[in-house]
Design a protein around this nucleic acid. Structure first.
Length: 272
DNA sequence: TCAGTCAACGTGGTAA
DNA sequence: TTACCACGTTGACTGA
């Protein structure tokens, strides 16, 4: 995975050092929501994602059998769930999640009853917690793998298969997309953090190297810093004197008859 | 007890 | 206007 991959996935890495809080740098939602928005003098990151495929495909046709529950305690659960004042007890919900596949059919029946109870206009505004059964979750996951979004018909069909309301199927898909995006964002964020660390280290190394070169430049005369191949004999050196700020005509021996070098990077006319 | 999970909800943006 | 979506939030529930 390299920077090309980042580009291909629509990710943009911005590396910088800021002493102020940058709202744009906190677009990485998962981390930003759990920690400080932007740390002082920390590298800032921006992240964008490509939207998913929104084509509709053939949905799963797996059927879930619905049979009548036979256990008395399950009927009791149904009775409790239909009660206007009660929400689902821990025991009943846990039992639903812990039961094996052989109880799938009764699970659907119970959930279906819950749905019905949700639709009952009993005057209670208490939000009831629905736990999807394993079979329902599996079918929803299977459908989600085929298409992350649903058209109305797919939603209706899936709701009928699962004995849920279309609204519940819709909500499940919305939450599922959000979880997928969150997970992918966290993965991308981790990768970008590693990239940031690498670039920060590289930047630190280059700064150190620059400081060393600057120190070397101060310690040595210019003509000693440059390789011999880059030095050229100044044509004016054939004359006596010629130093900057000096008047050869007044003091022709002020400057020794040593070679006078000049750098091609400087102005040759100023050199002499 | 508490942090994490997740169904459900509210809101704002957008396309048809 | 309507339906749908993304996003943020709420609150019931779970497991350590």
């Amino acid at each position: 995975m390299g920077f090309d991959d980042i580009c291909n996935t629509g990710l943009v890495l911005g590396l910088g050092f800021s002493s102020t809080t940058d709202q744009k740098s906190t677009k990485i939602t998962p981390l930003a929501s759990k920690g400080p928005a932007s740390l002082t003098f920390e590298p800032s990151l921006t992240l964008s994602l490509i939207s998913g495929d929104r084509t509709y495909e053939q949905q799963a046709t797996k059927k879930v059998n619905v049979t009548k529950p036979s256990n008395d305690h399950q009927s009791a659960d149904l009775y409790r769930q239909d009660s206007a004042a009660s929400s689902y007890s821990n025991a009943s919900v846990k039992r639903e999640r812990d039961v094996g596949s052989e109880e799938t059919t009764t699970e659907v029946e119970r959930v279906s009853s819950r749905v019905i109870s949700d639709e009952d206009d009993d005057g209670s505004n208490a939000r009831k917690k629905l736990r999807l059964t394993k079979a329902q979750s599996a079918l929803l996951e299977e459908s989600f793998k085929l298409h992350s979004t649903l058209n109305p018909k797919q939603k209706q069909d899936l709701a009928m298969e699962l004995s849920l309301r279309p609204r519940q199927v819709e909500v499940w898909f919305q939450n599922r997309r959000a979880r997928t995006k969150l997970k992918q964002t966290e993965v991308d964020c981790e990768f970008l953090k590693k990239c940031c660390e690498t670039l920060t280290e590289e930047n630190r190394r280059l700064h150190k190297e620059l400081q060393e070169l600057k120190a070397l430049k101060i310690a040595q005369p210019l003509y000693m810093q440059l390789p011999a191949a880059t030095l050229t004999m100044c044509p004016s050196c054939e004359r006596i004197g010629g130093g900057v700020g000096e008047n050869p005509s007044k003091n022709p021996f002020t400057i020794a008859q040593k070679p006078h070098f000049y750098s091609p990077f400087n102005n040759p006319s100023a050199a002499c």
